[in-house]
């Protein structure tokens, strides 16, 4: 370094980012990169006049990304007299796009619901986003009402693929992963444009365009094997709003179309819990021990029903019956020691 920076260590990251946001909001025509680096607090202390500022420029590139991640519309403006030139790009934050629309306000009751909604994500994925959304809501100065009954709702995302998939989706980035399709022995590599990530019946699904078939496919996140990687240089334009609801509607239709009929032991765990999920369809034979269940995935329902052991007998469909029986036989055999076989 050729210049001696003035107290560089005293400028914190948030002070530099805050100063950058203020400077870019205050400017109408935008600031060029060299103007930013030489004048804005946090950069100017490290700026070398006429020297090499490569590391400072990389810092600015990272800061831009961080600021945009927070939903701040940092724009790049090409100068009208020199279009296409990278050297004379200017940066600004249009105030109208930065601020909450003037007609948006939240009531105390709405704020109570939003606070509850944010606590859903207090573990893991989206917890930082929820926390920051609440901070922004608090800036409106409204005090929320308290619900009569205390709530502590939680959604946990255990699938490691949630984070890379949802980020790739926001950036319109095509991803690749190995997928173990039910009924197939070995995982196959898939390239997918992620359009929505949805939770249905307790399971996370990816809804996306398969690049091989160029058709929409649904993937269970729990069956993605290994890491999700970005396909270099492969991007797409997300279809945007409504894709999540479309995916949920499709899964709902699938769920409604599948019906399993089972017999449960009255009063048992299966009897008490599965009866609460009794399908409400006209013409169904429902009694104390007969339960009809909708489902989206036969293998997942088979796992669950096998857990109930002798409390459940599957009547139909035949494929579900076979899947549950083979699981029970498998568990029985895996826990039978050779010496005991005669007595088991």
């Amino acid at each position: 370094m050729s210049t001696i920076p003035e107290k560089p260590s005293r400028i914190s990251v948030e002070e530099r980012l805050f100063s950058l946001v203020l400077a870019l909001i205050a400017t109408e025509i935008g600031l060029s990169k060299s103007e930013i680096l030489s004048t804005v607090q946090g950069y100017r202390q490290r700026y070398a006049v006429g020297g090499d500022n490569a590391s400072l420029e990389r810092q600015f590139e990272r800061d831009k990304d961080d600021i945009r991640e927070l939903g701040i519309p940092l724009e790049t403006v090409e100068p009208p007299d020199d279009p296409g030139s990278n050297h004379h790009l200017r940066y600004r934050i249009p105030k109208g796009l930065y601020e909450l629309p003037a007609d948006v306000s939240f009531s105390a009751d709405e704020l109570m619901l939003l606070k509850l909604a944010a606590t859903v994500w207090r573990e893991g994925s989206l917890s930082g986003e929820s926390r920051r959304a609440l901070t922004k809501l608090n800036s409106l100065g409204v005090d929320s009402t308290d619900p009569v009954l205390g709530y502590s709702p939680t959604l946990r995302v255990r699938d490691a693929s949630f984070e890379p998939l949802s980020k790739a989706m926001d950036r319109g980035q095509i991803v690749a992963f190995h997928y173990l399709k039910p009924g197939e022995g070995a995982p196959r590599r898939r390239r997918v444009a992620p359009q929505a990530v949805v939770l249905h019946e307790g399971r996370w699904h990816l809804f996306g365009t398969d690049q091989e078939s160029q058709a929409t496919r649904t993937f269970l996140l729990s069956r993605i094997v290994g890491p999700v990687t970005n396909v270099p240089g492969a991007t797409f334009v997300p279809d945007g709003e409504g894709k999540g609801q479309e995916a949920l509607a499709e899964l709902d239709a699938l769920w409604r179309a599948n019906l399993a009929e089972i017999t449960v032991e009255p009063g048992s765990d299966a009897g008490v819990r599965l009866s609460k999920r009794q399908a409400l369809e006209p013409g169904l034979l429902a009694g104390e021990s007969m339960v009809a269940l909708h489902y989206t995935d036969l293998n997942i329902l088979a796992d669950e029903l096998a857990g109930y052991g002798p409390e459940v007998l599957v009547r139909s469909p035949v494929a579900l019956r076979a899947a549950v029986l083979s699981r029970l036989v498998g568990v029985r055999d895996a826990h039978t020691d050779p010496a005991q076989e005669g007595t088991a």
Binding site: E69, L70, G71, I72, P73, L97, Y98, E99, L100, A102, L114, A117, A118, W121, L126, E129, S130, R132, A133, K136, S139, L140, S166, D170
Partner: peptide
């Protein structure tokens, strides 16, 4: 004025 939500912040809520 208060800042807008990011795409992910709004989605989380």
């Amino acid at each position: 004025d208060s800042p807008r939500f990011s795409a992910r912040e709004a989605a989380a809520l």
